[in-house]
Each structure stands twice: as C-alpha cells, then as structure tokens.
Design a protein around this nucleic acid. Sequence first.
DNA 1: TGTTAATGACCGACCAGTCAGTCATAAACG
DNA 2: CGTTTATGACTGACTGGTCGGTCATTAACA
Lengths: 206, 206
Amino acid sequence: MAERKREKRDPQQRRAEILAAAFACFSERGFAATRMEDVAARAGIAKGTVYLHFPDKEALFTELVSGIATPILGQIDGLAANEAIPPRFAIAMFYTLFKREVLETERRHLLRLILAEGPMFPAVTEFYHREIISKGLGVLRILLARAAARGDLRNPAIAEVPQIVIAPALLSIVWTTLFEAYEHLDTQNLFDAFLETLFVPEGGAK
Amino acid sequence: MAERKREKRDPQQRRAEILAAAFACFSERGFAATRMEDVAARAGIAKGTVYLHFPDKEALFTELVSGIATPILGQIDGLAANEAIPPRFAIAMFYTLFKREVLETERRHLLRLILAEGPMFPAVTEFYHREIISKGLGVLRILLARAAARGDLRNPAIAEVPQIVIAPALLSIVWTTLFEAYEHLDTQNLFDAFLETLFVPEGGAK
DNA sequence: TGTTAATGACCGACCAGTCAGTCATAAACG
DNA sequence: CGTTTATGACTGACTGGTCGGTCATTAACA
C-alpha cells in the first residue's frame, strides 16, 4: 500500500532536499506549471512540510535560482587573477568551464529558467546582473584589454564589447534547450571557431 | 454606467484585433499569467467572443507566435538571392533588418516569449526551427561560403558554423529584454564590432 | 421576423497556502 | 532501565480564490 514513513531530518538536509526537488520540477516545467505538491512529492514529503522551510512558492524559486549561481562565482574571478595565463587560454578555459559546469549538466535548464521567467522576477534578474553578468564582463574586459595590448586580437575594438564573448555561450544554451532535438549543434566546434576568429592565429604573433 | 455597445465586426478584423490584444498581453505577462479575460478586455469585447474565433488559449497563443513570424520570412530569402551583393553587406543588412524590425519594435518581446515558453509548446518550437532558423541558417551558409571563397573571412572555418552570426542577435534580444534596465548595451556597436571581427578590413583585400 | 454574433453569468477543475491533528523522538522521572 | 510526558517536525484534508471554457439570453442586422 506504499505506506509513507514519517521521518525527521536535520533541517539543513531537509531544506537541501526540497531545493533539489524544486530544481528538478522548475527546470522541466517552469515556474507557473510547477505545483508545490509536485515539489513535495519529489522530495518524498507532504506539501505542508515545504511551507515549514519556505514561506511561499516565489521564495522557494528565488532562493533556488540565487543559490545555484553562487558556487560559479568563485571560479570566474580566478580566470583574470593570474596574469601569466595568456588571455586566449583564459577565455578558452571560460568556455570549457561553461560547457562542463553548465551546458552539459542539469544547470543549463536553470539558466534557461532565468531567461524565461526573468521578467516576472525582477529581483532575480537584478541579482544575476549584479552578481554574475557584471562580474563576468569585468573579467572579460580585463582579459580582452590584455589581449589587445599584446596584439592578440584580430579586431582590438571588441575589447570594448565584452558581451560578444558571452554571445556564443548564450546561443549554445538556447540551442541545446530548444532546437537540439531538431538539429544538432557541435558546441565545441562553435567555441573553437569563435576563438579562432577573435584571436590572431597561434602561429602568427607569439 | 459605461454601457458596452454591442458591435458586429468583419470576422477578419475581429480576429486581427484579438490577436493584437493577445500579442500585448502575452508579451508583457507571459502565457500562464495572461488571462483570457485580459485579452478580451484589451480587445474591447467580452470573453465569450474570443472563443468564437479561437478554440482555446493554446490555439490563440500558437496562432499568434506562428503568424508574427511569417512576414519576416520573405525578407530573409531576398538577402541571398542577389549574388551581386557583397556577403558582408548582406550580413550587415541582416543585422539592420533585425534591429529595425525586431529589436526596436514590440516584436522583440514575442521573440523572447518563444525562448521562454518554447519548451511548453513543442509545436511552436518545431515551427520556428523549420520556418525561420533552418531557412536563416541556409541563407547564412550560402553567404559565408561566398565570403570564404572571396577571401573576405578572417577565419574561413566559421562558414561551417553559421550559428555564430546569430549569436550577437540573440544576445541583443536577451540583453535588451532582461538587463537593459541595469546596464545599457549599444547594439549597433555590438553588430559593427562583430562584423569587423568576422571580415577582413575593407581596405585590405578588394 | 428569422438569423447571426456577442455577451457575461456561471460552472467546475485546479492549486497555493493553512492548520488541527499525529507520531517519532528524546528528555524527565521513578 | 522501563515508563511517562513533552516536543515540534510532519501530515494531508480543507479553504478560498482564480481562471479556462460554456451556453442561455439578448442585441443587431437582413
């Protein structure tokens, strides 16, 4: 009869379990179509229990999307810190990191969620701009300036538009979550080709 | 007492009015948060009337997003047709067209809608891939191949990844609808810088 | 006057959030 | 140690409200 066992848990762990369940549900169905009961069921608890840990659906959502981003923050800064690393290599690392940590994990759905639900949750959008985008652009600006100074850029003017570096990453997210079923995109090839376009060929200037 | 005047209309015109109202509502609130009553009110009619023209909410939505795209279709093909037009100029035109017809109009919200709600409506996604994306990529592939043959591309390899050309357009959509409030992005500059990166400088090879 | 289009009150499914009650655990007691 | 009692995490039936969709009625038109 599938008897449900009551089970007390460490609040921290419970919280984490709920967030994990919410992550799965929101990722695959979006905010509006996800029911709190679904989240509870996925976490293996009753609906009421969710409300012991989060005041309401919106709080659960914003907490989730904000929380997921934080671990990525640290890795970004590291890329610009070491001046010995060639800019091209650093940006290649950026794409590799993005591919391994976002594109090829379930996190990609989260990122798409932010694109999708962003306008409904200004607080989330603002958070992402402040904590991820503007920091990321800052790092890229430094890297591109350094590359321009070394004469590594085919077009030094792009040092002023670091968003260009993000464009292929964004495209890869949208493509894989929307169109991959109809037409495959080789993201590695995308990133490689793009890097080769931004930077002068390796053989050229050392 | 604000008596509502009943008014019969040409069915075609009524239909168009409903679609226009739906466009406004869906654009600013998304699919789930838009109520059929809102659409009706915006169109200046009663809720029931909407159902005389569209079987249900989903049909209204899919009809809308599909319909909006069609007029753009024609303009795309024109770009590759004329072999006398230099590829760089054609792609610059593509960006200009995109900017004038989408980015700087209310249509940009529609495009974001597709990104946002796409996974919930596979039929819409499939339609867009088939009718817009794959056609657009086809045109770009031709243009890039032509450019490569003329020696216009700094990195001829990108002729194999036409998606790269779309990336800045996608970025501009996402940025203007999500982050523009926090940080301005000069899209013209973005497109210009990108073009200058893809193509060898004008002065160089004629 | 008959036909067609429009209306909006109404229905019922759905769901976020509540709360009175349950029970596993563990502290206090004898 | 066994037994009693206190705790609060957990449960799920329930409520209040919302909204997609229907249809009997009514107005406009031919």
